[in-house]
């Protein structure tokens, strides 16, 4: 009755709300944890101590190099057809503007296609993308590539509608990528409300002029660490189930939901199993990634350093879509492995989280999944998640201790059973 014991301990017993309390202590203490920031390195040192105090095994830090970008002071002011201060969040890795800023007329488009059709109008302008929110993975392309596509047609800067499912005048940040051979221009996200207002003004034929100022700066890469802790397997210690979340966040809010929650339910999974005196046949490895938000930078280096042992990884798991009440588990693997995972999900009947979806995903575990290791991620309320994602609203106020208890129970049952059953998950 292992599953029942884990569920009782996490949801109704001594350990309830522990992951929420631990998370709130960390994020209230250090705040948001941007790649390259002192806050992130402080959080790593605190977690290194926490995991040792929690009497986990083989607790250690694995050194990596990560990007260091700083936002600096930034602002945007609409000057015509009337004065209006625009809330913005510059995008990660963007360059800054000259001190006096960039003042230019805007060209509003709703898609890359429209931008290419109107390329002749773009030279010397600030391109405003007012792309509709379809879903995160489709719409995020405008944030990631908006500057490059605007620069290709001679624009001076790009302002991109925040990639969010709901807005109360909240800009959302995130990483953007330049392209070799394409001039670098400053780029930031604006609110849904401002993107739509500017679009309405332009569609009536008004000339819209904006002044953008950004103090953003890119610095040389800095040292950081992936944080690792284990419960060493009692029979096949060289074989691994990897449970993970990322410890870094954007430099807004507290980085509680994205994805402090995922990091702390991963820690909680090992604590629950340890508290019950359980030791699975295979090693349960917790990894708290660094610099996920810049593109899985810490996780890629971890993969490079450990891929020689890939045949020993039975399952890789990452929680990076929030830890609200889970609707189930996303899973990528063979049909045989999926059939086994479906049996495992039945053990979660007591908390009614038994659905197994496709497309297990996670920036940090994608390298392992692409190399054939079965992968799993926690799925929950994406509408709520992307409403707060990468915004100043990402704080403990969004989190719910009871929902985190359930998420931790799912995470602990799945990771323990796969780590303890006699065989590894089948691959092909």
């Amino acid at each position: 009755d292992v599953a029942k014991a884990i569920i009782n301990l996490a949801v109704y017993g001594e350990a309830q709300n522990r992951s929420y309390e631990r998370l709130s202590l960390l994020v209230d203490t250090v705040g948001p944890r941007l790649s390259g920031s002192k806050n992130l390195e402080k959080a790593i040192q605190i977690m290194y101590q926490n995991l040792q105090d929690d009497r986990l095994e083989n607790v250690h830090l694995e050194p990596v190099k990560i990007p260091h970008w700083e936002r600096g002071e930034e602002s945007a002011m609409m000057l015509e057809p009337r004065l209006h201060k625009m809330a913005i969040l510059g995008l990660g890795s963007s360059i800054g503007t000259p001190h006096e800023g960039i003042t230019a007329e805007v060209l509003v488009v709703t898609s890359f296609d429209e931008l290419r059709r109107r390329a002749s109008e773009a030279r010397g302008k600030i391109v405003v993308y007012n792309q509709p929110y379809v879903n995160y993975s489709k719409s995020v392309q405008y944030r990631v590539s908006g500057a490059v596509e605007a620069a290709k047609v001679g624009a001076l800067a790009s302002l991109i509608r925040s990639v969010t499912s709901f807005s109360i005048y909240s800009p959302h940040t995130g990483i953007q990528k330049y392209q070799d051979g394409v001039p670098k221009i400053p780029t930031a996200c604006i609110t849904v409300e401002d993107a739509e207002m500017v679009a309405r003004m332009a569609s009536r034929g008004s000339r819209v002029v904006v002044q953008l100022k950004m103090g953003a700066k890119n610095y040389p890469d800095v040292d950081s660490f992936n944080t690792v802790a284990e419960i060493i397997g009692r029979k096949y210690p060289e074989q691994v189930v990897l449970v993970s979340g990322h410890l870094d966040s954007w430099d807004v809010g507290q980085g509680a939901m994205d994805d402090g929650g995922g990091a702390f339910i991963s820690w909680e999974a090992l604590s629950l199993i340890k508290d019950l005196g359980l030791r699975p046949k295979r090693t349960l490895r917790l990894v708290l990634w660094t610099a996920e938000e810049q593109g899985g930078i810490g996780a890629f280096q971890y993969y490079q350093q450990h891929k020689a042992n890939i045949s020993n990884y039975s399952l890789v798991m990452e929680s990076d879509l929030g830890t609200f009440l889970p609707s189930g588990l996303q899973f990528t693997g063979s049909e045989k492995a999926r059939a086994i995972m479906k049996e495992v999900m039945k053990l979660l009947q007591p908390i009614n989280v038994t659905q197994l979806f496709t497309a297990g995903e996670g920036t940090d575990i994608s390298f392992w999944i692409q190399a054939g290791v079965p992968g799993a991620s926690l799925l929950d309320d994406l509408y709520k998640y992307f409403s707060f994602h990468h915004s100043r609203g990402d704080t403990m106020t969004v989190m719910d201790p009871e929902q985190m208890n359930v998420a931790a129970a799912v995470w602990a049952v799945v990771s323990y059973v796969i780590a303890d059953r006699e065989e590894m998950l089948p691959r092909n």
Partner: peptide
Amino acid sequence: AAIYQNGVSQNTFQEIKEEIAHYK
């Protein structure tokens, strides 16, 4: 039992189902 090094299980799916059910 095999540890799935060669991708072939020594157990039938029914045995696997029973194995997992005992974790309940």
